[in-house]
């Protein structure tokens, strides 16, 4: 069993590259290797880091230091492999360090540009034992940039998987189909009673005095008044700091809370007043 670090797109990231990395990891774990997976975005991988950036590449270097093999899938185009922009230098140096930390390194390159920077190949590709590309043209581009021909292999990507079995036909529901028949009168009767009363209630509500007043504002009356969040902390010192900060910031928030609560109450009062006027108009007419 050897320790292997695999870096590349990984499910749930979409695309054939993620599927290919999963297939590679599947092979490695089947062979009994201890695999750590790194992906450029959050996924099912153990870690996610951008190996094109300095921070991500340095973290990859730390992981690679403990591994016997490092297998990295790189998108050459997005790493600007065709030129040498100064802003890419920190990331390149980090990646150069990572590929020098592991005893055995294999790189798989996607989207290799027609012309590749010699500086990039000497920094990133030189320490690799094997570099894999998808086409002969990509291989030619790498050789022109000074990569050792013995290292560069061409492996075509596997064909996309066969479409899955799918069914548009609703299968027969084994736990019963739709309603077996009309409901007994008692359930229907109760539902009918509920519906009729609800309609009557709606019709009667505006004309009713006394108890109906405040109906419109009921949800607002149930809404809790705004207040400052309680100070919580597992640590006593944290509690003290939070309390002190709360006092310092009080002048900023308390008037907002007060204002919102006044608005809340004013809305309730206005709704109640409108309801009272509406009720008295109906009674008068």
């Amino acid at each position: 069993m050897s320790r292997v670090v695999v870096a590349g797109p990984y499910p749930t990231m979409p695309g054939p590259e993620a599927a290919a990395t999963l297939a590679l990891v599947r092979e490695l774990v089947a062979a009994g290797d201890d695999v750590t997976v790194v992906s450029p975005a959050p996924s099912a991988a153990h870690h996610h880091l951008d190996v094109g950036g300095a921070r991500g590449a340095l973290r990859l270097a730390r992981l690679a230091a403990d591994a016997e093999r490092l297998l990295v899938r790189l998108d050459a185009e997005s790493l600007a492999a065709s030129c040498d922009p100064p802003r890419a230098l920190p990331g390149r140096l980090g990646l150069a360090l990572a590929v020098r930390r592991a005893p055995l390194v294999e790189l798989r390159l996607d989207r290799v540009p027609p012309t590749v920077s010699r500086r990039w190949t000497s920094l990133v590709l030189a320490p690799a034992a094997r570099v894999v590309v998808a086409t002969a043209d990509e291989r030619t581009a790498l050789l022109a940039a000074g990569v050792d021909p013995a290292k560069v292999a061409v492996e075509e990507p596997p064909p996309p998987p066969a479409p899955p079995r799918r069914s548009h036909r609703p299968d027969r529901a084994s736990s019963g189909g739709d309603a077996p028949g009309p409901a007994p009168a008692s359930a229907a009767d109760l539902e009918e009673l509920v519906r009729r009363r609800a309609i009557e209630e709606r019709m009667l509500a505006p004309a009713a005095g006394g108890p109906a007043a405040g109906r419109a504002s009921l949800p607002l009356r149930h809404l809790s008044r705004m207040e400052r969040a309680p100070v919580k902390s597992d640590k006593p010192a944290g509690m003290l700091v939070k309390r002190a900060l709360g006092k310092l910031m009080a002048w900023q928030f308390d008037w907002v809370i007060q204002h919102v609560n006044q608005l809340h109450q004013a809305t309730i009062d206005a709704l109640d007043e409108m309801e009272r006027r509406h009720t008295s108009d109906d009674t008068t007419s």
Binding site: P180, A187, E191, R195, R197
Partner: peptide, 16 residues
């Protein structure tokens, strides 16, 4: 299917 429960369609019906 069971004819054993009553359903409501809105807030007023739930109240009732």
């Amino acid at each position: 299917r069971s004819a054993a429960g009553i359903t409501y369609t809105d807030f007023d019906e739930l109240v009732q």
